[in-house]
Amino acid sequence: MRPAHRALLLLLCLFAAFLLSFADAWRLRTLRAALTHESAVLVERLGLTDPVLFTEARYTRHPSQADLQSAFQDHPVALEHFPTGSLIAPPAGLLEAYEHLDRKTASPD
């Protein structure tokens, strides 16, 4: 096979895969539509306002319901100190170095 034919065949295959990705997206959308629908029904039924993406603080659990000055709610110069405001989770090893200031229980309640 000529090099030109090989290169064009490769491009053609890649282009076909590109087009196939749209067909696959349509297939997956149809398949996963039930998931979206089930969530949407629950939102309507319970009157939910926010997805459960960041649960560490009330203004990150429900950003749409938060006070207007929620980042400063603990005291006047308190900057946001929850990791949602930064980029990624701090490494586990780093977290261990700090003393947990929250309430502790020896055994599960």
């Binding site: 749209f22 696959d24 997206a25 997956l28 959308r29 398949l31 996963r32 539509a33 998931l35 979206t36 997805p51 459960v52 993406l53 960041f54 649960t55 560490e56 990791p83 949602t84 980029l87 990624i88 989770a89």
Partner: peptide, 20 residues
């Protein structure tokens, strides 16, 4: 995933339908 979704102790497991 962790940068774009966010993270938390209780994190939902979900698969996204492809909207392009």
């Amino acid at each position: 995933e962790s940068v774009l979704k966010g993270w938390a102790v209780l994190y939902p497991r979900f698969t996204l339908p492809p909207h392009i």
